[in-house]
């Protein structure tokens, strides 16, 4: 079939040019001067502190959004209330706001000219051009990820199992831990890894509030930018290759989770034939 072959051919060329080549380029450029240069670039103190700061920010931002995601999904998926559609739209809002605008709004609130600027200065608290501001900006851009994953999933699963547990005398937390969580665990994991990938890789928003102090307020993506602009190509791509590796791991976990999720849904569907499979 010529049509089939042509379409597959075009698709593969497109994927090859736009996805495989850029990915391959990162690793090739990183290793262009051999493993030693690659290793040296990662061992360098500024690179190392950027890696540590990236992890620190992620470790704070992801759990915050995890708690929020679970709460928002519970309220939105399990209950009916006025303004629900509006609330769901607001949860999605950070997705459509430019990262640069996301950074700017925190400058307007906490910066020297901002609402709380004078008060913060008087009390010697630094938020903008310091780590707290970078955490806030990261929380903003990764805000909807987990809620977005959980809401449709919990809506599709309905309330019957939770109601049954309640009739049997389970408390709210027991219902969540024993009934809801096992049903949503793969979706939850999926949301967490997407949130994590974005938190570690965020550039625009963090760039606005960072101040770019080497060794202090540089995350990995910001460090990549500095090295690249200083024409230290190998070092820039070495740090970038860590982030690309993170992206690859994310994709692998995502594929596994999707497969598990499908199996779980199929099992649920087999248990109760009336329930529509979504």
């Amino acid at each position: 079939m010529w049509l089939r072959r042509t379409l597959i051919g075009i698709a593969l060329v497109f994927v090859g040019l736009f996805l495989v080549l850029p990915l391959a380029a990162v690793f090739t450029e990183a290793l262009r001067k051999g493993f030693d240069a690659f290793y040296e670039a990662l061992k360098e103190p500024d690179a190392w502190s950027a890696i540590k700061l990236t992890f620190l920010i992620t470790v704070i931002a992801v759990p915050l959004n995890l708690v929020f995601g679970v709460c928002a999904a519970w309220a939105i998926a399990k209950f009916e209330f006025r303004g629900k559609a509006f609330l769901t739209t607001l949860v999605d809002l950070p997705f459509s706001v430019s990262p640069v605008v996301a950074g700017l709004i925190y400058v307007l609130v906490f910066g020297a000219q901002g609402w709380f600027g004078p008060w913060l200065q008087a009390n010697d608290i630094k938020i903008i051009f310091a780590v707290p501001g970078m955490v806030l900006a990261t929380v903003f851009v990764t805000f909807p990820f987990i809620a977005r994953e959980l809401i449709p999933l919990m809506q599709a699963q309905g309330n019957e199992e939770e109601q049954a547990a309640m009739v049997l005398g389970a408390s709210g937390l027991q219902i969540f831990w024993r009934v809801t969580l096992p049903n949503i665990k793969w979706g939850l994991l999926y949301g967490v890894i997407l949130c994590n990938a974005r938190a570690m890789g965020e550039f625009g928003a963090v760039s606005v509030v960072s101040g770019h102090i080497r060794g202090q307020t540089n995350t990995m993506p910001l460090h990549v930018e500095i090295l690249y602009n200083e024409y230290q190509s190998v070092a820039a791509f070495a740090v970038a290759s860590l982030l690309a590796l993170l992206a690859l791991v994310t994709l692998v976990i995502k594929s596994v989770v999707e497969w598990k999720q499908q199996r779980l849904m199929a099992e649920l569907a087999a248990l109760s034939p009336e329930r529509p499979v979504v």
Partner: peptide, 30 residues
């Protein structure tokens, strides 16, 4: 291919930027 489609979601934008530049600049692969 199916898994790779999500790469732009997972790859940090700065990495995508320098990598595309390295490919397309006058001395790049393409």
């Amino acid at each position: 291919v199916d898994a790779l489609v999500d790469l732009p979601f997972a790859l940090p934008t700065a990495v995508a930027g320098i990598s595309l530049t390295a490919l397309l600049a006058g001395n790049g692969w393409i």
